[in-house]
């Protein structure tokens, strides 16, 4: 009897919980729709001509729908050039950040030497500094280095210069995440590698790196988003607009004299595509790879 009763109670409770969950789900769902609305509205507007909206108001029923804004945006933004620039900056920067980050994390967690903690501290704190704090000296250094090697465009006005500053800044975050993850990897794996006489190089590239795949995947998504979306460094460290990434090409649509907002919307939607692809392709690995704080470790 008592068992039956308690089971009954449990059932009731589960039932109540179920209703509550549904309510919560609906509530969160309504907010989720609100969350997407701004993007959806922009997308909707990007299919309409601006002149029509100017004439009939934003809420007017559409008379003309089509991809014409996209066609114009693609031709005015010179997409291939600017997408290529974005790739030239983002891909090496993400790659180097992850490489350096995992190297640092590897050494500080797997080998014990005096400066482990100090280094980790330095990197993490550095990642949190405001970018504007370093920008004038970095600019001056890039120019000075350029003059030294006889080519002003050695780092300044060169995508490598932008790559390096991104790497220098983001490395801290990567090191931090990777080192917390590495702490969760049993030490025995490293030990057996070392006992087998693997040198440091093999130990890292053959043993550790494959194990780091999940956090590397999540970091890759985050880093791609951050670096791809940056416009500050590309603005101040480059002088040739044709070398700047896609985020600055949006400015070309915002012409002072004819701001066609719907054209701008189309441009914005185009610019978002790469990060969206990266996110949706890696969505599964994304959250699972970011075991921050590692309570289990």
């Amino acid at each position: 009897m008592t068992i039956e009763k308690s089971q009954d109670k449990k059932k009731k409770k589960l039932y109540a919980q179920d209703i509550k969950d549904r309510l919560i789900s609906i509530f969160i769902g309504i907010f989720a729709l609100l969350w997407i609305f701004p993007i959806a509205w922009t997308l909707w507007s990007s299919f309409r001509p601006y002149t029509e909206i100017m004439k009939n108001g934003v809420l007017s029923p559409p008379q003309e729908l089509g991809l014409f804004n996209y066609e114009e945006a693609i031709s005015r933004m010179e997409l291939p050039t600017y997408f290529l620039n974005s790739a030239l900056i983002t891909i090496p920067a993400v790659f180097l950040t992850l490489l350096f980050g995992s190297l640092m994390a590897f050494v500080v967690t797997r080998y014990s030497f005096k400066f482990n903690v100090a280094l980790l501290l330095l990197f993490t704190a550095g990642n949190l500094l405001p970018a504007q704090l370093v920008f004038i000296p970095v600019f001056k250094m890039y120019l000075a280095l350029g003059d030294l090697v006889g080519d002003r465009r050695f780092l300044y006005d060169n995508h490598w210069g932008v790559v390096l500053i991104h790497v220098a800044f983001q490395m801290g975050f990567a090191t931090f995440v990777l080192s917390s993850y590495m702490k969760t990897i049993p030490k025995e794996i490293s030990e057996s590698a070392m006992v087998d006489g693997a040198n440091v190089f093999t130990h890292f590239f053959r043993v550790m790196l494959p194990l780091l795949r999940p956090p590397l995947a999540s970091l890759a998504v985050l880093m791609t988003t951050w670096i791809y979306n940056d416009f500050f460094w590309a603005l101040v460290l480059m002088s040739t607009d044709k070398k700047r990434p896609i985020t600055s090409a949006l400015g070309r649509l915002q012409g002072e004299f004819t701001t066609d907002y719907n054209l701008l919307a189309a441009g914005a939607m185009i610019a978002v595509i790469p990060t969206l692809i990266v996110f949706f392709v890696m969505r599964k690995q994304f959250v699972s790879g970011l075991t921050l704080g590692s309570t289990k470790g």
Partner: peptide, 12 residues
């Protein structure tokens, strides 16, 4: 906004 850097660096 970038003119100062532009002129110091590699301007047109």
């Amino acid at each position: 906004n970038n003119l100062s850097q532009y002129l110091q660096g590699t301007p047109d």
